[in-house]
Simulated assay, not measured.
Amino acid sequence: MGLGGCIILIAAGAILTFATDWHMQGVNLDLVGVILMIVGLIGVTTFSSIARRRRVVVPPTAPTVIEQERRRDGYGM
């Protein structure tokens, strides 16, 4: 599941928990919403930790300086 799926789970859980007043016999929609939000948060943290591990840090290299000999007559380089 990608980052977008996790965000959708969090949004759907928040909608079920805070924005609905439906009552179903045998199903607590508030609890289902909280569970969806928790699963979404776990997914976001897992995704971000995996993405952080995949990054490869390449240290910058110093530029190579090549000195050119000057002409003795003073014209150009």
Rank of each mutant, 00 (worst) to 15 (best):
I38N: 06
A62K: 15
I38W: 13
G74R: 09
C6Q: 07
G40T: 04
L29D: 03
R55I: 14
I66C: 03
T46C: 00
N28A: 09
I8M: 12
I35A: 14
R53E: 04
P59R: 08
F18D: 12
I10T: 08
G26E: 05
R72T: 10
I15E: 10
Q68M: 12
T20M: 15
R55W: 07
Q68D: 14
A51W: 11
T20Q: 15
Q68T: 15
N28I: 00
F47E: 10
L3I: 11
S48M: 11
Q25I: 13
I15S: 07
F47H: 09
T17C: 08
T61H: 03
I10N: 03
G76Q: 14
G76W: 15
P59Y: 10
M1Y: 02
V34A: 12
M37P: 05
V32P: 01
V44D: 03
G43N: 08
T45D: 01
S49F: 01
L16C: 06
G76F: 15
P59D: 09
S48T: 14
A51N: 10
V27H: 00
T46A: 04
Y75C: 06
E67N: 08
A62Q: 14
V39H: 03
D30H: 02
R72N: 10
R52C: 07
G4H: 09
A12S: 14
